[in-house]
Amino acid sequence: MANRQLLLPSGFPRAPLGNGVGRFMCQLKRVTLKFCKERGDSRGMRDFLEHDLVDFATKHPSVVVYVKPRRHRSSVIKGEYCNGKDFWISAHKMNREEIQKWLHLATTQNDGEEFRLRKMMHTDNPSIQGPWTPFTHRDPKLNNSSFPLEELSEPVFVPKSATQQLIEIFNEQQRTARHLEEKQGE
């Protein structure tokens, strides 16, 4: 991770006012489109205003759209959100499609803040069946026993010794040989 990303403000997924628990509310309050009537770098914005602005405004009645011509300044999209934060992006030399995309982003996000997400989910109830504790699945018999207990002091796993393995193999061979002899006898 680059240093810049470490220094970015970071946070967890959140929604203002429990959005979606009650009714859903679009968080964009108003958007201001600033542009120049003459200069070429505002051309895309002028195209957008000419062709798509009315569609955008009718599609998003909850957003107030202001159009602000400014002489000889580059075009800008500025959004204001319900939580009081702003979203500002320069639309300098952007074409109509690009402006449409950035405006769509402005309407769908909660605020213009760029921050690093530390988790990809948020929950207030991390465990319903209960987290593990030292007492979970504990044998109640242990309540009355006194420690140290011999039973619990034994090693959990003891590998077989070489002698024991040899004895087992020998016994199995004996059994097989007996079995074969019986078959031959038949």
């Binding site: 009714r23 509310m25 679009c26 309050k29 108003r30 201001t32 009645p61 909850s62 957003v63 107030v64 202001y66 602000k68």
Partner: peptide
């Protein structure tokens, strides 16, 4: 501010809260 229209703001607000 220059870009401010109170009537449109009220209309948008009523639409926002539905």
């Amino acid at each position: 501010y220059l870009d401010w229209n109170y009537k449109s703001e009220l209309f948008a607000f009523s639409k926002r809260i539905g």
